[in-house]
Simulated scan of single mutants.
Amino acid sequence: MVLTDWASSKTNGFGIATLSLGNWREHRLEPRCWAAYLEENGLPGDQLWETTPQNLCLARQLGDLVKSMGMRITCTQPLRQIEGVKDPAERRANISLVAKRFPFMQAFDTDLVFMCANIRTDSGVTSDLKTVGRDLAEFGDMATSFSNADGGRMLR
């Protein structure tokens, strides 16, 4: 997540990625939000992005908590090593991972997800820009479809 000062967030205000604030297993809710929040509410970290009613309820609560501290969640992050994957099963799993973020983005009241460039160098990925571009375009189309079906703001 990236947290931004609410008052200045509409004018390129100060923000910080929660990844920059310490280890989620050692630092509590105020400095590290989402993973610690789930753990504090009895959910293990490996269920972080499962779109269960309980997780989505907790995501909305977290979004409200962040707002109550005068901040907002400006994006979720990170999606890593998602694009350019050759194996069809792994690619489907990545597509599923991307799709799982959308309801959480809505619950956090953010429209942006951060995606890191794929830095894998093994033979399971390609650096072919047409393939990578196709994957990124598909993720964008998925976000558009989700937003249109949901009636919420457009996800990016």
Rank of each mutant, 00 (worst) to 15 (best):
S20G: 05
L29I: 01
V113K: 03
A99F: 02
S9F: 01
K130I: 04
F114D: 10
E26C: 08
R134Y: 12
N12Q: 08
I95W: 15
T121E: 02
Q47W: 14
T11M: 06
V66K: 06
T126A: 00
R92C: 09
A107V: 09
P78S: 05
M105D: 13
A117H: 06
L56R: 07
K100G: 14
A59G: 09
G15Y: 00
P88R: 02
S123L: 08
Q54N: 06
I119K: 10
N148H: 09
K10R: 03
L129H: 07
G13C: 07
T52I: 06
N55P: 08
D141I: 07
L65K: 12
R101E: 14
L129A: 07
G151E: 09
A99E: 03
T131D: 10
P103N: 03
R153D: 11
A59F: 04
M154V: 10
M142F: 15
R25D: 14
L155W: 07
C57P: 10
V2G: 04
R92I: 10
R153H: 13
P31Q: 00
P53N: 04
C75T: 04
G13K: 01
D46T: 10
D5N: 00
E138C: 13
K86H: 14
L129R: 08
V132H: 01
A99G: 03
R32A: 06
C75W: 03
L56G: 09
L21Q: 11
P31E: 00
E90I: 12
A36V: 04
L48M: 02
L97N: 15
N12H: 12
G140W: 01
F104P: 08
W34C: 15
M154S: 14
L129T: 07
G45I: 06
Q81K: 08
G152H: 06
